[in-house]
Nucleic acid binder design. Structure first.
Lengths: 66, 66
DNA sequence: TCTTTACGTAAAGTTTGTTTTACTTTTGAG
DNA sequence: CTCAAAAGTAAAACAAACTTTACGTAAAGA
């Protein structure tokens, strides 16, 4: 799975720490997500999508190997 | 978080086992999701949404305590 | 240059997702 | 009613998410 987090943060002018605080996780969690270190839970992706006012599918994408 | 999985399965006339096989998890995983035993990963919710041809947000819902 | 802010990263530890096996209960068709 | 399919459940084991602490680097401004 890939994601657009970095771009969305840029659009909304937020740091990793801002986003982390906003959705209630650690900054390292946001960083690890952006670097594709792991797949977040559905609660996290729903929260992030809600924060950015976009569907989950426009921020997180399945890849062939998923 | 809540979800509509049972309803969606009914609409598509699928058993838990059908859905499990289709997205590559065990039947117990589907069952546990329906019974709100845990929060699935974003890869799973994306796959399920794709299978049912609906946005993730129409199948999985944040609740106040999320 | 010194300091601050943002980002990257890593290790250890806790929590939670997911599988496997296996058994019970419910439901629907015949 | 009876049998089979579907759903519910549970425990043990393993994998992955997530936290905390902590340190390194680069950029930008005073």
């Amino acid at each position: 799975m890939k994601n657009n987090l970095k771009v969305e943060r840029a659009i909304h002018n937020m740091t990793q720490a801002d986003l982390a605080e906003c959705i209630g996780v650690s900054r390292q969690t946001i960083n690890a997500m952006e670097k594709n270190k792991y797949v977040p839970s559905t609660v996290l992706s729903l929260k992030i999508a809600k924060r950015f006012k976009k569907p989950v599918e426009t921020i997180f994408f399945l890849e062939d190997d998923d």
